[in-house]
């Protein structure tokens, strides 16, 4: 399974194990590589980084912990499921804005096989996936933020509220995340005073094919017609590959799409004003088994070329 925009990625692997003995070890290796590559490209030594914000989908966010241990920088571990990269980027930017840090790192990772094993069924179990299912991406993304530099800059952060999706199907997370994404978008435009036309592109995390359609409808109902400006990373991540069902998901989805693909487009000035709305389903396997609805969240972060 290859991302349709993988030309923008710094490293690609053929082996889903990355030469490691297990999926979980492969996952932490992905984040370690993303952090190391980010520091190398930013020409910053790890010792100068004031804080790393990172998260993943595994229990006790273990991949991020080990990656932070390898990086050897002060670390705040985060869990916001597929919205983690948005949460990390928002916090990393706010810390710099507060004047408390000069360099911060934000990152997130997921691995298809480790996530399926933990959240649904192991892939070797061969469970049938319904058409609304999404493919957890095997990818990591990391971004380096600094108090000075050429940009692009984070210019606005709208932190999401936890929204009851009124849905409990773990094979339809994209649809579950729609109310949270719409809530955050409506709040963002209200509190910032900005208009949709202030952005070249508005990218949601992983609503996927069905969720994106539902979100467009709900946004029109809320008098926010984003039209062609609205794009969903999950729905476009694997192009038109039907084997991923509704699209991509996972903490690495918006992380690699934003830090790999979208920022490359911003550097080329194809995009100058970008709003990223990272969406996440915050359920646990136990909450699903006990019949709880999926609680969802979405964080909006605006990035602009200076």
């Amino acid at each position: 399974m290859e991302c349709a925009f993988s030309d923008d990625f710094d490293q690609l692997h053929e082996d889903p194990y990355l030469g490691q003995p297990s999926w979980e070890k492969a996952e932490r290796r992905l984040l370690e590589e993303a952090i190391a590559e980010t520091l190398r490209k930013g020409k910053i030594e790890a010792q100068k980084v004031n804080l790393l914000f990172a998260g993943d989908l595994l229990n006790q966010i273990i991949s991020s912990t080990f990656a932070a241990q390898t990086a050897g920088v002060p670390y705040f571990g985060l869990f916001n499921a597929c919205a983690t990269a948005g949460e990390a980027l928002a916090l990393a930017a706010l810390l710099i804005e507060s004047g408390m840090a000069t360099y911060t790192l934000a990152g997130a990772v997921s691995h298809n096989a480790s996530a399926e094993r933990q959240m649904r069924f192991p892939t070797e179990y061969g469970s049938q996936r319904p058409k609304t299912a999404q493919w957890t991406v095997t990818a990591a993304g990391a971004g380096l933020l600094s108090a000075t530099g050429e940009g692009p800059s984070v210019t606005w952060v709208t932190v999401g509220r936890v929204v009851d999706s009124a849905m409990s199907d773990p094979y339809n997370m994209g649809m579950a995340e729609v109310p949270a994404a719409v809530d955050t978008l409506v709040t963002h435009f209200k509190e910032s005073g900005r208009k949709p036309s202030d952005y070249d592109l508005i990218v949601t995390g992983d609503l996927a094919a069905y969720g994106l359609e539902a979100a467009q409808q709900l946004l029109r109902d809320a008098h926010l017609d984003l039209g062609e400006r609205l794009m969903d990373a999950g729905a476009t991540y694997y192009g038109s590959d039907p084997s991923v069902q509704a699209g991509a998901s996972g903490a690495g989805c918006i992380a690699s799409f934003l830090f790999g693909h979208l920022l490359t487009r911003m550097r080329r000035h194809e995009l100058n004003r970008l709003l990223v709305v990272a969406t996440g389903s915050l359920h646990s396997p136990v909450s699903i088994e006990q019949g709880d609805n999926i609680p969802c969240i979405a964080h909006a972060v605006a990035l602009e070329n200076n």
Partner: peptide
């Protein structure tokens, strides 16, 4: 049961 009732394989 999977497609209409949305039950998991288990």
């Amino acid at each position: 049961l999977i497609d209409v009732a949305h039950l998991t394989a288990a």
